[in-house]
Design a protein around this nucleic acid. Structure first.
Lengths: 367, 367
DNA sequence: TTGTAAGCGTTATCAG
DNA sequence: CTGATAACGCTTACAA
């Protein structure tokens, strides 16, 4: 636990020798001043002086080259390279009220699905010249409110959430920003602005249908108490009733800390009076925890216990006997969201502000 | 695949009804204008007018309340609440050259370990009033260079990387920023500025020692070709030689796309002429892929094949027979990094700019 | 402890 | 197509 344990004796042996490379393996693009690096950043005025034009012309040449005569554009280009000029985003944002930052907030940065979506979204937006940054809200209204407050201050070019904003006050703050807002991961009737989502209620219904088709009669539910978990439960409940299945146990959790949470939830069911033959976990992490615990306890999956998850995580397909799971194409969700944002940001008139993604059922050995 | 598939017939049934809540469950903190929301943001001047003081006094009251007389402070406080004022970070940053944003860049946002560390770091920094945002560099020098260029423009309060910067040019740009720079996840002799890391070379050595102790004689390596993968391989190689083990196969990959990568790497070893009894995977995702593929092929772990991973991922402990893995306490790494950054940012003189974390060996059933 | 004046670097506006 | 001017909202420096 102490970092000093072998400092004297072994550090010279053990220290990593990280390779420092003189030349990037890509075309040299790091800007350089006249003679290496200057702390003094060049301003628009410096570039203008060097190119013998006015500052505003430099500004124009940089933002909309077509509006500047080619010869001046050339001179400006050169001056920019010589000075290592890069735009001061604060000055730019202060004056114009716009910025090139797109902010995304994930309710949980540890989620494989959210990460996939955000990564895909980042790729699209960065290609279009935006800086895509991610913050976290930790499934907490308090943190979400704080995040939205900071948005109010930063006025990014656009914002994206891995979820839907539930607090009315926050929805109004976001609307008042008058920037593109992207909600995801659900399909509310009245999104704040743009939406790439899917129906969680439908996910619950699908789970019930799958279990019913397999002949299960008494089933259980494990999932988060609030938010999308509640929606999935609602759909599951409704459809169970419709199909004549008994939902004998509902285990609701506040926080999914890891696989062990699924384990303890399964135990909660096992030690209760009821005895379901299958369980729908509204989250793959919970489902995988259940699956592992079941196997550890000698409960055969799917013979003694059927398990359905949600999220289509990487490992669901790989772990024996294969976890049946409902999910969406998260990468596609992120990609679509990114493309819609870009369209809006570049001033296009969007005919469809919402996009609904199909749920994907990956049927495997666990039911 | 089409979003319209059931729009007419079922959407009313399937659409999620996300609960929109009028009142936040926390003490109402969302600011409100005189009568609901105004698009017009309040400025320092507006607050000053209302509080009947000068703008600069408001500025002071906000940044350093002790320097303003209590009665004025009260009036200002009230005016801030009434106007819903929040500071304009662009104007602030433009004038002062500082910002309250701390930027972190992850080489891979999908990594459980990086996410854990960043989450822990975020918690510390957000508590201290910083906005912690994460970008991704995707293990690409090109993306890393672009990210660092944007830093050059944004001049955040501090920057953190889940790794060590290798390109000399980028190191110089970072140094020229004159802000706290935090490197992590390795232990180079000459960090740019601050460092919370561990020795990857040592990790490789430890893996070799573990395998040797278990009696393995012919071993293989699977891992990333560059960066920390190369360091772990170096340590592994050295120690194998020292302990008289034969490193009969080195499978080097450029990109770890998921568990399936581990599967294919194992196949690569199996179809070659050599026949190692154990494999060190420099990454848990690769190790888990190997483990699953081995089990699928009927290769008994650890009897026929021993497997060691790196990273101490959540699932390593849970999956039978338990993956032996070497790792660090990522959450602690993030926490320490955050605390060191805060100390520096608040002007403390730091005696130790680097911190070395011990490696943790979690010995389980796979060797 | 408080206020005045100036300016950070950019872009909107309008005139040429 | 180009330029002069002013202003974005804040903080530094200095004065009272």
């Amino acid at each position: 636990m102490n970092t000093q344990h072998d400092a004297e004796t072994e550090s010279l042996v053990y220290d990593d020798v990280v390779r420092i490379m003189d030349q990037p393996s890509l075309s040299a693009t790091v800007h350089e001043g006249n003679s290496g690096f200057t702390n003094q950043r060049a301003s628009l005025a410096d570039v203008a002086r060097l190119a013998e034009v006015s500052p505003i012309t430099v500004s124009r040449a940089l933002r909309n080259p077509a509006r500047v005569r080619p010869d001046k554009r050339k001179r400006i280009q050169l001056a920019v390279e010589q000075t290592g000029y890069s735009i001061n985003p604060y000055a730019s944002a202060l004056k114009s009220g716009r910025s090139n930052i797109v902010l995304a907030f994930a309710s949980n940065t540890m989620s494989e699905q959210f990460s996939l979506a955000l990564k895909a979204c980042a790729e699209v937006l960065e290609k279009a010249g935006f800086l895509f940054l991610v913050g976290q809200t930790s499934y907490s209204y308090e943190r979400e409110t704080a995040a939205i407050r900071s948005l109010h201050a930063m006025k990014p070019a656009a914002v994206m959430f891995t979820g839907v904003i539930e607090l009315q006050a926050n929805r109004e703050v976001l609307r008042s920003l008058e920037i593109p807002i992207m909600e995801t991961w659900a399909f509310p009737k009245d999104p704040i602005d743009m939406l790439v989502g899917f129906s969680n209620t439908e996910a619950g219904q699908l789970a019930a249908e799958l279990l019913s088709r397999k002949g299960y009669r008494e089933v259980a539910y494990i999932g988060r108490r609030s938010g999308r978990g509640a929606l999935r439960l609602k759909g599951f409940r409704t459809q169970c009733q419709l199909l004549g299945m008994d939902l004998v146990s509902e285990v609701l959790v506040d926080d999914i800390t890891g696989l062990s949470k699924g384990r303890s939830c399964l135990h909660e069911i096992l030690k209760s009076a009821v005895n379901p033959q299958a369980v729908f976990c509204a989250n793959d992490v919970l489902a995988l925890g259940c699956l592992m615990e079941a196997r550890r306890l000698g409960i055969s999956v799917p013979k003694d216990l059927g398990i359905i998850g949600f999220g289509d995580s990487d490992i669901a397909a790989e772990i024996p006997p294969g976890l049946t799971t409902i999910g969406v194409d998260s990468a596609r969700l992120g990609n679509e969201a990114g493309k819609m944002l870009i369209a809006r940001l570049s001033g296009e008139i969007i005919d469809e502000k919402t996009r609904r993604l199909d749920l994907i059922v990956s049927e495997r050995g666990s039911i």
